[in-house]
Amino acid sequence: MENDLISKKELLDLTGISYGQLYRWKRKLLIPEEWFIRKSTFTGQETFFPRDKILSRIEKIKNMKDDASLDELADMLSPNPADVNISRETLKSSGIISGAATAIFDELAGEQDTFSFTSILHLYLLDKLLQSGEISGDEGKVLLKTLDENFSGLEGKNCDVIVIRKLGASSCILVSAPNQIFFDTNTKVAGRLNVASSIEELKAKLANAGIG
């Protein structure tokens, strides 16, 4: 665990940012509150961060801050869904979501002409797990149902979506993150995705495709 954390001092030293910038980004919610981990050390309380997450986040902010304002960045990085509706054709031509995922979605929800950000996110999560071969089409349906019924309760919070299998039967779990969960030995985790980072990826992809 110790190796996964980076102290604030080390972070500033490594990235070359100042205290002012760090606090400003924290204020603008570019760095989530839960990444600030307080620990007692021999010099008193110190703040630590999850090393990989904070380093990649700061790299991202440094790269993007010349092109976008901090508020725009905050929108892109926040776990809140963006306020966009995208037509079927636009989504299809952008190539973000595969046809297989869309077909499963259509089977459950009926053919829609436009997709809200939340639907696209569900599609995106499904697509990622399908593409990586981690889950099957039937499991995908379970996943979509779980997301559809329960996602609103976790909106704006960080969560993980997990697909598990035991003795040939599969199931899907939504769990607020960061959290540790443990399964019995017969249970196999088929696929696991972090929703907040997927939202981030999706927002970046939509922005690259010139939509949203």
Binding site: S18, Y19, G20, L22, Y23, R24, K26
Partner: peptide
Amino acid sequence: SRISEIGGDS
């Protein structure tokens, strides 16, 4: 006065 922590630019 008492403030737990202060962080900022200036």
